Amino acid sequence: MHSRMRLGFFPFVRLTLLSAALLTPLIALAQQKQHDVLTEAQVEKIREAGIDPNVRIKLYTEYLNDHVNTVKGLTNRAKSDARALHLDKELQGVTELMDELGSNLDEYSDRHADIRMALKTLADESQHWLTTLKALAGEEPFDLSRKEAIEAGEDLTDQAQRLLREQTDYFLLHKDEKGQERAEPKPQQQ
């Protein structure tokens, strides 16, 4: 009986090692993908701003503006394979950045960071992004990326507007927490 237990254990170990070996390149690919969307300097600025939610959101907003403006600039160019590929790549980058920003908003919201200042700008800018993305006529090479970017933009716009309303209400009730980067639990009185 003891030898059967040992034999049953080895396939588990092999499966675990095989899974780790297969996942490692996928994780590296995902990290590389973000580096394709942002420059090393932009990634470093975002890392440094990690302690200041408003600055971090402002940076993402700025970088998204750059990508959406690139999409807008490509819109009026003559149709070509190179243009279509460039649009596809830019649209994928827009979607990736919007998703990443949405994740950051979730984190900052959960810890009750006061991000109203950045949310106001984001709510306005995201409307502009949606207008630009929706104005882009769909073409076969990038239509899926366009639809995904529009969906991500709608989600981000809704999230920013909802969080701005929630934060406005929250900080009306918790004036002592206004301007904070993170809500710290209050000590319980005994």
Rank of each mutant, 00 (worst) to 15 (best):
E139A: 13
P187R: 14
Q31Y: 04
H67V: 13
D36L: 11
E62I: 02
T157F: 02
L119D: 02
Q32Y: 09
V43Y: 11
A49V: 07
L164D: 05
A183D: 04
E140N: 15
V71A: 06
K58T: 01
E181G: 15
L133H: 01
T132K: 11
S145A: 13
Q159E: 14
K175Q: 13
T157I: 02
E44G: 08
K79P: 06
Q34G: 05
L64P: 00
M5W: 15
K178L: 12
A113G: 06
L64Y: 02
E100A: 07
L18F: 08
K45V: 07
I46P: 01
L74I: 07
L122N: 02
A21E: 05
R77W: 11
K89Q: 14
T121C: 02
F9H: 05
L74P: 03
Q127L: 09
E181Y: 08
T168R: 13
A135G: 10
L7G: 06
Q31N: 15
S126T: 12
E62L: 08
Q31P: 00
H86M: 15
E166P: 04
F9S: 07
R162G: 07
A135I: 05
F12S: 10
L172G: 15
E125R: 15
F142E: 03
R4Q: 15
L164V: 07
L15F: 11
L97Y: 01
K147L: 12
V94Y: 01
K120A: 02
D106H: 10
S126I: 12
D66K: 04
L7E: 12
T168Q: 15
R162I: 06
V55N: 05
L119G: 04
F12N: 01
E139H: 11
E44L: 14
D143S: 15
K134A: 04
D155P: 03
L101I: 02
K120Y: 11
I51E: 09
T75Q: 15
K175N: 06
H2P: 05
I115E: 00
L7W: 14
S19P: 00
K134F: 01
H67K: 14
K134N: 15
N54G: 01
G153C: 06
N76T: 15
N65K: 09
R4T: 08
Q161I: 10
D36S: 07
